[in-house]
Amino acid sequence: MSTLTSSRTSLRRPHREAPSILATMVLLIGALYCLFPILWVLIASSKSSDELFSSFTLQPSVHLWDNIVALSSYRDGLFWRWMGNTFIYAGVGALVSTWVSSIAGYGLAKFNFRGKTAIFNVILMGVLVPGVILAIPQYLLLAKVGLTNTMWAVLLPQFISPYNIYLARIYAAGSVPTDIIEAARIDGLREFSIFHRVAVPMMVPGMVTIFLFQFVAIWNNFMLPYIMLGSDKLFPLTVGLTSLLNQGAQAPALYTLVITGAMLSILPLAALFLLLQRYWRVDLASGAVKA
């Protein structure tokens, strides 16, 4: 009997199945498929525009630095402006959105008042509203107040995310004990100080997740800036590179710039992910979908 118990608790069980080569191969093929375009763009950005269409695709060359210089000098460094704009849109947008969602989620999770369920349900309906119905009227309404073709036109609509409010409510309900809020009240803290000084530190993992979700959503967004912006000085990378590609259809030399730009624009987000992976709690999302 004791042997059975010990074999059950030990890590190496005798009846454990051997590692499967086939299963590992499937995983590695998937990894290769996902890495291949990224590998390609790293190689292609090292080629001159002649080599791009003449040499074998996966044969690297030595022109990476030349390409970066050419891209940087394209219209006085417009590309780096796009990169900066993207960071502003995604960084500021995600920060504000995280604060708005967290404080609203906390308010909805930790207070009881009349109309709370109604408000939450209305916001929840926003999760299901397809973005398509919003973009064009957002443009028309912002045009009425003269905000189109400004940074505000891209920032303001992305401050609000019903899905993030929903996540924040779930996370606040689970991570901030009501007793601690009561104790802080007895200590004489005002409700907003309780949120910022007591609740926020407990909600940090959830807030990092919300921040990253929104950061990626804004970084990847194409339709909203594409509709809102006319001046290419305000473009984010997605819209800027598409416009460059459109011109490339007439002038293939621009293709090298597009490829180098694509390579450079992958790096920041990939680095952010590899760095923040530990803090990123996807279980918040999957736990949320279970509820």
Binding site: N220, T238, S265, L269
Partner: peptide, 10 residues
Amino acid sequence: FLPFAVPAVI
């Protein structure tokens, strides 16, 4: 997971 960090346009 890496392609998630690549915008659809790119």
